[in-house]
């Protein structure tokens, strides 16, 4: 699903965010990305959704070399990858339902079937009753659940979550993680970048530890700290 070959990312100021990364994440896997702030987790995620391009090396996502994608192919890649962010990134002027439907609309499909899909995704995250509310009227957890519904609605084969619990209290964090675990159990590849040691230690899934842009640890059933 994800294949990085000798990938480095160097910013114009000469600082390396990622250095000589080799990484494989297979279809259906569940992997945590851990490491201190500035270790390169967010840069790695930006490379996976082609928000940025690698300086050297090759990044392949779902079979596509992201650097070779142009124009609408970039949009197509992003439509296949569901992304969940720490700050939710919901469209503030759109209702919960509209935010979720937007992810389908960009694929060019809108209709009764899609509205039903949005409805289904919202009930999956337990937010069907909030469908006509605006993001500002929701709690942090509800906003994140909306974002997850949006990430799931187009049935992506890969979901990437960047600090999905960073802005949430412990109880809400667990709700969100349980939701993501269910998503993975349904067959979707899941990559979660997180600082939340409790969650990583409790789930005992694959842990990829980044430090100063390099992978320093990659364990099948890892802990947050070595």
């Amino acid at each position: 699903m994800i294949a990085l070959d000798d990938v480095s990312k160097c910013y114009p100021n000469g600082a390396y965010a990622l250095r000589d990364l080799d990484l494989r994440i297979e279809t259906g896997e569940f992997a945590f990305l851990v490491g201190s702030s500035g270790a390169g987790k967010s840069t790695l995620i930006r490379l996976l959704v082609r928000d940025e391009l690698p300086t050297t090396g090759r990044v392949r996502v779902d079979g596509a070399d992201v650097a070779k994608l142009k124009g609408s192919a970039v949009s197509k890649l992003r439509q296949r990858v569901g992304v969940v962010f720490q700050d939710f990134k919901l469209l503030p002027q759109r209702t919960v339902a509209e935010n979720v439907e937007f992810a389908l609309l960009v694929t060019g499909h809108t209709g009764r079937k899609e509205a039903e899909a949005a409805e289904h995704a919202l009930s999956l995250v337990g937010l069907a009753h909030r469908r006509h509310h605006f993001p500002r009227e929701l709690s942090g957890g509800e906003q994140q659940r909306t974002a997850i519904a949006r990430a799931l609605v187009s049935h992506p084969r890969l979901v990437i979550a960047d600090e999905p619990t960073g802005n949430l209290d412990p109880v809400t964090s667990w709700e969100i993680i349980k939701l993501l675990v269910r998503v993975n159990e349904l067959g979707t590849t899941l990559v979660i970048a997180t600082h939340n040691a409790d969650i990583v230690n409790a789930l005992r899934r694959r842990v990829i530890h980044l430090d100063h842009g390099r992978i320093v640890r990659d364990e099948r059933e890892g802990q947050y700290a070595a």
Binding site: V49, S75, K89, L90, P92
Partner: peptide, 16 residues
Amino acid sequence: RDEIEIMRLVGASDRL
């Protein structure tokens, strides 16, 4: 501009 960024990340084409 945040709205534009979100639309891009969700996979909206520039035209849309």
